[in-house]
Amino acid sequence: MTGRIFLFGDDIDTDQLAPGQYMRGGIADLAAHCLEGVRPDFAAAVKPGDVVVAGRNFGMGSSREQAAEALRHLGVAGVVARSFAGIFYRNAINLGLPVLTAADLPGVTDGEACQLDVDAGVLHLPDQEQTVRLDPLPDNLKALLADGGLVPHLKKRFAAEEEDRRS
């Protein structure tokens, strides 16, 4: 799926992703305010397939799972950053939000077309006729993401085990 790049800087924190004052509502309400502090139109403008590209330490701050959930709710295809805060990284993978690192992201511009291929670990930039290589994810995390996160992944696994027992 082709989407567009939404470009951010360093140190995007969990309070920007899931603002504390909207935590009491459901995920839809919360997602509507995702990143509004840095980019007021983000939640309204972002569409399924779009990719968030950021600098260092993306997702720093609290351990709230909603920070990753909000992006996933908005249909973001994934986040590519120089580095992620550890707990956010765990939460994102477990909630099925692809998060990939890249040491260098030369020439990626805000708003340009892109396709994120999580399995191959690349970001295609068709307008530039360029493909950016991302750090590859290990197979166990790819499997988790392909299934949509930890809970669906385990459901599938248990169902398969059940099937084995019966056959």
Partner: peptide, 16 residues
């Protein structure tokens, strides 16, 4: 770890 991951650990004994 959070509750979702903990449930996964309790069910499988594994974690990444």
């Amino acid at each position: 770890i959070g509750a979702t991951e903990m449930a996964g650990v309790l069910a499988t004994g594994e974690i990444w």
